[in-house]
Design a binder for these strands. Structure first.
Length: 460
RNA sequence: UCCCCGGUAGCUCAAUCGGCAGAGCGGGUGGCUGUUAACCACUAGGUUGGCGGUUCAAGUCCGUCCCGGGGAGCCA
């Protein structure tokens, strides 16, 4: 009977006639016997197998090298050696797939992240990226469990969208037209002849649709891929990423900030509880200060700071900034970093931004100058969450759309929500990859998503 | 897209003022009866990112393009 490496290592007793299948991580051969360490992805640790000369399959042991896939039959027994409690005493070994040692790129030693990115198809076989994938999987489950336990409905919003502009960056065009043909004809593209009869894009946010469902189901969330065609080349941006977008009816900005804070904390706890071994790897080899950084987040209330106060703090600070600080200007990265890394040294939620620098759908505050927006800034990662209370008043929303220069007709169904039983509601977007960066201490977003999409990079 | 740094063996890196291109790891071969990043001996391995220029001579200097990293903008 086949058992996974994880089961074998957690075994309470010896087991006869087991079967282990996996990839060889390392081989140590002596005259007359050979040690193999097998990993099947079920956990971080390897299972050691000892194969004695004379066992069926031993004649092929020379062809077994790092990276090969094998099937080992034998007994699970207490290991006489140091370093592991259990090992497999093999009675038979079978090569499933060889890996040529001359060309197999993964070695037993540590590789640089930059190199591993060039072999994205093989990097999940390393300790670090295997751990990353298991944590990513567990965190995804944690997101669903968190919202499910709170009574939120998981909703699916479209990936192809006709909403032209949401103030969330450049969009990828989706078309079924033959662009080669259009180009050779030298004509302008007529999207009326395209599949949808109008220009279509990949979504930059499910928010507008999510609001529709929140105003029917109450509390909802999306968790899906999101696309930005920005030509941004940084360790914190990818063109395709996964975003979690809760949307709550009958909730104001304060409720919204509360949910964001609670969710971030619960997700960190979830990873710690369910992936202790994998998390330990990151604490030991990736970010020595990971434990204390996460403790700092868990044990402190997030600072809630109005934009106006943030500007005041920055103006009063002795810090020299490259960019000006002034009411009405957006905060630059250096300002955000100063606030959460120097001034408060913990996560900071900045809220109530000037309406001029935020999109039309955010609720106008009574001061007529600011909107009920909020950004959650976390030391090391920067902006993790962006959200707002939505404008629920029909007249205010319409004039805000006008002010922004957008076309009301394009948003008729969105505006209709305010016409029929409108309610205060709020929501935010949380970048899943950035949450993983925060949780693991990995500093480049390309290393928390296995096949990252960035400008000029679409190999895998 | 802009600014800065880098590209030398499969990987990580060294090479003084412009003067014979090196090491560790990995690989191969042989040895070793309980190894743990095994160990010991031997060994192969290079268009110094591409193209062009300066020079008696270029890994090294100049131009240009490509790729990678960091910072900025945009944002999650």
């Amino acid at each position: 009977m086949r058992i996974k490496v994880k089961e074998a290592l957690n075994s309470e007793q010896s087991q006869e006639n087991i079967l282990v299948k996996g990839w060889v991580r390392t081989k140590r051969q002596s005259k007359g016997f050979c040690f193999l360490e097998i990993n099947d992805g079920s956990c971080l640790k390897n299972l050691q197998a000892i194969v004695d000369e004379g066992m069926p399959g031993y004649e092929e042991i020379d062809q077994v090298a790092t990276g090969a896939s094998v099937c080992i039959a034998g007994n699970l027994v207490p290991s006489p050696g140091k370093g592991q409690a259990w090992e497999v005493k093999a009675s038979r070994i079978e090569i499933i797939g060889k890996a040529d040692p001359e060309t197999y790129p993964l070695q037993k030693k540590r590789h640089s992240d930059e190199f591993l990115r060039t072999i994205a198809h093989l990097r999940p076989r390393t300790n670090k990226y295997g751990a990353m994938n298991r944590i990513r999987s567990e965190m995804s489950y944690g997101v669903h469990k968190y919202f499910h336990d709170k009574g939120f409905n998981y909703i699916h919003t479209p990936i192809i969208t006709g909403s032209d502009c949401e103030g969330a960056g450049e969009m990828f065009v989706v078309t079924a037209l033959d662009l080669d043909k259009t180009a050779t004809q030298g004509k302008k593209v007529n999207f009326e002849q395209d599949f949808f009869g109008k220009q279509a894009h990949l979504t930059v946010s499910g928010q507008l649709n999510a609001e529709n469902l929140a105003c029917a189901l109450g509390d909802v969330y999306t968790f899906g891929p999101t696309f930005r065609a920005e030509n941004s080349n940084t360790p914190k941006h990818v063109a395709e990423f996964w975003m979690i977008e809760p949307e709550m009816a009958f909730a104001d900005l304060s409720d919204n900030m509360g949910l964001a804070e609670d969710m971030v904390k619960k997700m960190i706890l979830h990873a710690r509880k369910n992936c202790p071994d994998d998390m330990e790897l990151f604490a030991k080899f990736v970010d020595k200060s990971l434990e204390s950084r996460l403790d700092n987040i868990l044990n402190n209330a997030f600072v809630r700071l109005p934009y106006t106060d943030a500007v005041e703090i920055l103006e009063k600070s002795k810090q020299k900034f490259d960019f000006p600080v002034k009411y009405g200007l957006d905060l630059q990265t250096e300002h955000e970093r100063y606030l959460c890394e120097k001034e408060f040294k913990k996560p900071v939620i900045i809220y109530d931004y000037p309406k001029e620098i935020k999109p039309f759908y955010m609720r106008l505050n009574d001061d007529n100058k600011t909107v009920a927006a909020m950004d959650l800034l976390v030391p090391g990662v920067g902006e993790l969450v962006g959200g707002s209370q939505r404008e629920e008043r029909l007249d205010v929303l319409e004039s805000r759309i006008d002010d922004t220069g957008l076309n009301k007709e394009d948003y008729w169904w969105y505006i209709d929500l305010r016409r029929f039983g409108t309610v205060p509601h709020s929501g935010f977007g949380l970048g899943f990859e950035r949450l993983l960066m925060l949780t693991t201490g990995v500093t480049n977003i390309r290393d928390v998503i296995m096949f990252p999409r960035t400008p000029n990079s679409l190999e895998f």
